[in-house]
């Protein structure tokens, strides 16, 4: 069973130690991704979703971050890599698409040159071969007039086109796992759909494994096989996308689904809400972090954080509530 898991994250905790107080942004996260599977990490700001993702590529400042636990990608423990081994791993085994391509791409080089550099950094091929491969990648991500666009600078491209270019760059060395950090959040609605469909097609064609970080449950539903819902650094619910959507078991997931304005409204209606605001990571409550906002809170919730327990096939939840909660739809 574990054989076909291309990526395993075990007991991952990430603590930022640079500030006045240490901040535990990720707390005992367990995840795995099978070959060809798409996992969505869903959560609000400060939930630890992006921090988890970045840990997989070791993008955090080593001096100010303490990482505990193991991250096994394609048989390698990422937490033990250093220097050259880490450079070889990044982009080749696991690669990443960022939210803001304008910030992630280098503004002073053409996008074609950036892709060339990535290819030649990992493989000893000629400039011409690299250029041909870059061209194929641009065709693959459906950039119009790809030959000409390879010679464009990032600022000469539109937002949607830049994101396509970054996806091409991320795929340059045929990685096995693609990490995507809110890749469509900065895009307009009509462009967001295009990019989501593109990522889905590429994932299927190339048999990629993907972790897709998003705050938008709608985006998760559109791309993911499984969803992990994060809150205050912990995974509070994990399961197949259909199960989490239709029979959410954690009160936070239930709340997230019902607070979403979706479809019409009878005049005078109000949206169901989750009271309060996301917690302060430097000052987390002792028990379940969601307890202060939870309508079904019990005394024990405030003292002991619940363990993950199975509630269905591949569906786990960190909540002591026994009765299944009914979703909005």
């Amino acid at each position: 069973m574990t054989k076909d898991k291309i990526l395993r994250v075990e007991q991952l905790s990430v603590t930022f130690t640079g500030g006045t107080k240490p901040v535990r942004a990720v707390d005992n996260v367990d995840l795995d991704v099978a070959r060809g599977e798409v996992l969505a990490l869903l959560g609000e700001s400060g939930s630890g979703k992006s921090v988890t993702l970045r840990s997989i590529l070791r993008l955090h400042n080593e001096k100010r971050t303490r990482i505990d636990g193991r991250i096994i990608a394609d048989g390698t423990d990422v937490t033990l890599l250093d220097g050259d081994a880490l450079s070889r791993f990044r982009g080749k085994t696991v690669s990443m698409v960022f939210q803001e391509p304008m910030l992630a791409l280098d503004p002073v080089y053409t996008v074609g040159r950036q892709i060339n550099e990535a290819i030649r950094r990992h493989e000893s091929v000629s400039q011409d071969t690299a250029r041909t491969r870059a061209l194929h990648l641009f065709e693959r991500v459906r950039i119009p007039s790809p030959e000409r666009r390879l010679d464009s600078y990032p600022h000469e491209m539109s937002g949607g086109m830049r994101q396509r270019a970054m996806i091409a760059l991320a795929l340059a060395c045929s990685p096995k796992v693609l990490l995507a950090d809110e890749p469509t959040t900065a895009l307009d609605a009509t462009v967001q759909v295009q990019i989501l469909l593109l990522l889905r097609d590429l994932q299927r064609e190339l048999g990629l494994s993907m972790i897709f970080v998003t705050h938008d449950i709608g985006v998760a539903v559109e791309v993911a096989d499984r969803v992990a819902v994060m809150y205050a650094g912990r995974i509070v619910e994990l399961g197949p996308v259909r199960d989490v959507l239709r029979t959410p078991r954690h009160p936070y997931t239930v709340g997230l689904l019902s607070t979403r304005a979706h479809g019409g409204r009878l005049s005078g209606n109000r949206l169901p809400t989750i009271p309060g605001s996301p917690p302060d990571l430097t000052n987390l409550p002792a028990g379940c972090a969601f307890a202060p906002r939870c309508s079904s809170v019990t005394e024990s919730c405030r003292t002991k954080a619940p363990e993950a327990r199975a509630v269905g096939a591949g569906h786990t939840v960190r909540c002591i509530l026994q009765h299944p909660t009914v979703g909005p739809k």
Binding site: P144, S158, G159, G160, M161, D188, A189, T190, V191, V193, Q194, L196, L197, R200, D216, I217, G218, V219, V221, E222, V241, R242, L245, H262
Partner: peptide, 18 residues
């Protein structure tokens, strides 16, 4: 608009380009 339905996902983008 996103489908919110894993069994009826969007299959086509209504517009091309930006």
């Amino acid at each position: 608009l996103l489908s919110m339905d894993p069994d009826n996902r969007r299959t086509q983008a209504p517009l091309a380009g930006d």
